[in-house]
Design a protein around this nucleic acid. Sequence first.
DNA 1: TTGTATGCGTTATCAA
DNA 2: TTGATAACGCATACAA
Lengths: 339, 339
Amino acid sequence: MAQSRRPTLADVASRVGVSAKTVSRVLNEDGPVSDATRAKVLAAVDELGFRPNLMARNMRVGARDSTVALVVPEMGNPFFGTVAGGVEDVVRDRGLTLLMGSSAEDEQSELSLITAFLARRISGLLVVPATGAHHRYLRRERDGGLPVVFLDRPAAGLAADAVVSENEEGARAGVAHLIAHGHRRVAFVGDRPATLYTRKMRQRGYRAALSAAGIPYDPTLVASAHDPYTAGVAVRRLLDSPSPPTAVFCGNNFASLGVVPALAEAGRRDVALVCFDDLPLAAVLEPGLTVVAQDPAAIGRAAAERVLARLGGDRSAARTVMVPVRVIERGSGELAPPD
Amino acid sequence: MAQSRRPTLADVASRVGVSAKTVSRVLNEDGPVSDATRAKVLAAVDELGFRPNLMARNMRVGARDSTVALVVPEMGNPFFGTVAGGVEDVVRDRGLTLLMGSSAEDEQSELSLITAFLARRISGLLVVPATGAHHRYLRRERDGGLPVVFLDRPAAGLAADAVVSENEEGARAGVAHLIAHGHRRVAFVGDRPATLYTRKMRQRGYRAALSAAGIPYDPTLVASAHDPYTAGVAVRRLLDSPSPPTAVFCGNNFASLGVVPALAEAGRRDVALVCFDDLPLAAVLEPGLTVVAQDPAAIGRAAAERVLARLGGDRSAARTVMVPVRVIERGSGELAPPD
DNA sequence: TTGTATGCGTTATCAA
DNA sequence: TTGATAACGCATACAA
């Protein structure tokens, strides 16, 4: 209850009757200390509940804080949770602590979050950029030796390392898969906003697959949604149109959570479906859900490794790492169109 | 490329030709500064790319860092991601930054993570305890005025605020729901290890429901699993036993991801199922999955509000907040047993 | 084996 | 409206 001031090195020192430096030596195992004093110091540390103040230490040492920060747009999206898990696996082995914060997909929040991290002198920065955010202001940090790596989406206005999924090729493969099963009218339900990097790349893959098959691009077959509800509405509208699609390619996980129920409720088991991003229970649906699966943990690991490489002195040009995706056939993508 | 030392207040000051204190005044909007100097200072700050060093500031001011830390056992579990989102919604409004780290369900990792946070003088600590961890060592921090709140599971060895789901009552209601539909042999697939708080509470609810219906407790109907694979094996074994259950109550989300596919693959649509924790796509399954849904965002919000209350001077006794759960009927829990 | 003086980057205090 | 000085908690350099 005392709510008293936290004990400092000096408090411990005076209690034992030694100098602050001696206490410091004991705690950092730096320099020689007699066993007797060591024991007394440790006892006092324990009694007082002394905890070294890392802020003071880092300041004096001039080192960066031993943390790596990760900024994601949505805490609740399991995709980013898994990415974070991958990052942590790698940095933990190097004695670094991962700190994570959410920008809530808001440019301003992202800026203030990153500012907060920079003010704490982190050792590395990993960012999944919020929609519309630019990162020119990080140039100085990067040039000053701070490893800055972008995930899932590249930076805007900054040449920096990035780790992204094979969005275009994955979408192309998924759509080509539908076409190979006979579909010529394939709808695309993309993420929103349409300017989102992953949305653009996947739509590009969609168009590439169409074009390779000699199918003209029909903008009326394209819709946008980030949340399940909007996606459900969109897919219903597509199916009710005068010349409806016989297959749907869904461009992100939250949209899939709306498209799948919408098809089920409409009783449209005849509509073929391929989704970008794997989902839990996808295999249990009837038919099973064919997906283009990303590997979020691998994205996190690769990004963390870029940070460590930069921290280790790698001064090579910024590079973009592409993490492979793979098509998992489960049934919904192998349905033939009606005759 | 210069890799030069970061600019400090003094650098900015000397460039403008004023004292460091004046720059400090401008940046903190503290004390009077002429518009002319203010403009010059801000220009210099911008040119030099100066960023205040929060470590130094906090040290001097003696205040805690304006961050709240959250420790979770698994980054990849969407349950905790959603909890984190709830926490962030609340603390952000108060100008606090949420930092999140994972203990990987390991006692040692949790300790070192919390130590790292404490060493950075955070303003509040939220912990989902790792299995087997104790928290006696946090007593001093709490007594020293640091708000410490536990989520999802209570602390061991420390009287502290906690926010948990209505585990026992929720499980009781879920199992009673199955019994009400005619089942007398109801299996329980609980989390692992069996000593886990949520596992124990839910199993207690299971037993309460049985006992209220006059059904004897049969340990051969109880299994444990945290991961989907183990859960699938367990449920198959249960169904293949000499006197199999006609219904299953599944005690956590990852286990559900194994139980649901196992039943589907075995073609056992006759087995009734209720799961603790809602899942994406649960409504799309056939039959739809009846669940006891938790409200992870509400847990996060409630916990953050406890922290803010303590930060605001609330010195009342530690309390445990129970967040309600609710049964969502979708079909799988309303199946009648075979005659 | 131990202690003293000094400085990290910032702000509080007091004076100008 | 501005500046000089000291201090926050700790570690470095050097001396004892």
